[in-house]
Simulated scan of single mutants.
Amino acid sequence: MRAGRGLLAALALVLAAPGGLAAADPAAEARAAAESLRAAGNLLSGAEEAKDRVAALTETVRAYEAGLASLRAGLRRATIRERAIARGLEARRQELGQLLGVMLGMERTPEALLLLHPSGPVGTARAGMMLGTVTPALQAEAEILRAELEEIATLRALQEAAAGALADGLAGVQTARTALSQAVAERRELPRRFAASPDALKSLLENSDTLDSFAAGLARDSGQGPAEPGYALPPLPLPVNGTLLRGYGETDAAGISRPGVVLATRPLALVTAPAPATILYRGPLLDYGNVIVLEPAPGILMVFAGLAEVYGATGEVVPAGSPVGLMGGAAPDAAAFLKAATEGGGSSQPETLYIEVREGDTPVDPAGLFELDKD
């Protein structure tokens, strides 16, 4: 009856344990995310001494954003997995309790009496054969349950441990954003190609009642000429970590259709130049909030609208990946981050960036330039 007693111990563990999981993919993902946040902290430590502080701090902010996104996803999947196992165990609690009662009775009954059968030696033999067949199957089931409980325990411990890495990560990314804003403001080495006079820009703003008229005037005044026939930019990365909310020309909730796309982003997400480009304009524009207009090639404009903060100066030529602004919103504290990651609810990407691409006077679908996927 040693096998029966081992099974009994396993079943007792099932009924007594508070819930848990063995190392599964969600746990591994969350651990990797915590490590990436620590790596981002190392980048932040070295950024102040870097030759190009703007580039180093941009890489640091991006690393923090990626680490926090991965941690959020890992914790969410870990929570879903834990709840699924807990529901399964709860659904089987009565069954397991009955089985435990049977096993307790078996354990308390002397082995000699347990194998005796009222019908005599043949019945006793059959009973022994049945017990020998059932016990391994029950043992296997108990091992599965034990693994599930260990998995739940691992995930719960992981969520507790993530709080420390998360607090450091949220503080670190804020420090990196502040340092980046300062480094951009202090930058003096960028070349300048075109700089419209303040009076010309002011006049253009005052006389433009649409983004279309403003962009057309800006392209005309830039002195770069129309786009070359047949010229096409290579596929470019998105300027911000986000997901497609509205496609080109789609109507929004207010019934307005615009010749651009809208990306949903997280608060304070970093916006970067997808390609080397000249800054033709940066600042508020009509009802678009803060806008930055880039010219990556003659006659081709990229308009990014809805930023809370814009970087750079008109006429600067910024390299690909250079920071051009930050999205709005407020950074969550650790408690709010964990609650959103584990409980869900609400939008984790409440900010929106509007992107418009123009070739001369004509808006074109940004999907032809960027890889746009709905999440």
Rank of each mutant, 00 (worst) to 15 (best):
A3M: 10
A3T: 07
G4Q: 14
R5C: 00
L7R: 03
L11Y: 11
L21N: 11
A34K: 07
A40Q: 09
L57P: 09
E59K: 05
A66P: 02
G67P: 08
L71N: 08
R72K: 12
R76W: 08
A84Y: 10
I85N: 10
A86R: 15
E90A: 15
E95V: 13
G97W: 05
Q98P: 01
L99G: 10
M106F: 11
P110V: 11
L114C: 04
H117P: 05
S119G: 04
G120L: 05
G120V: 09
G123W: 05
A127F: 13
V134K: 07
V134S: 09
A137Y: 12
L138G: 04
A140G: 03
L166M: 09
A171G: 14
V173L: 00
T175A: 14
A176Y: 01
Q182W: 11
Q182L: 15
L190G: 12
L190F: 08
L201C: 03
K202F: 11
L204W: 13
N207W: 08
N207P: 00
N207M: 09
D212M: 06
G217V: 00
L218C: 04
A219W: 02
A219S: 05
R220G: 02
E228N: 04
E228D: 12
G230R: 05
L236E: 01
V240D: 02
T243H: 12
R246T: 10
G247R: 01
L263D: 00
L268W: 03
V271L: 02
T272P: 02
L280D: 02
P284I: 09
L286Q: 09
M302E: 13
F304D: 04
L307Y: 06
E309G: 05
V310W: 00
Y311I: 05
V317W: 10
A320P: 01
S322Y: 14
P323C: 03
A331M: 15
L338D: 01
L338K: 15
T342W: 08
E343D: 08
G344C: 06
Y354P: 00
V357G: 02
F370L: 06
F370P: 02
E371R: 04
D375G: 10
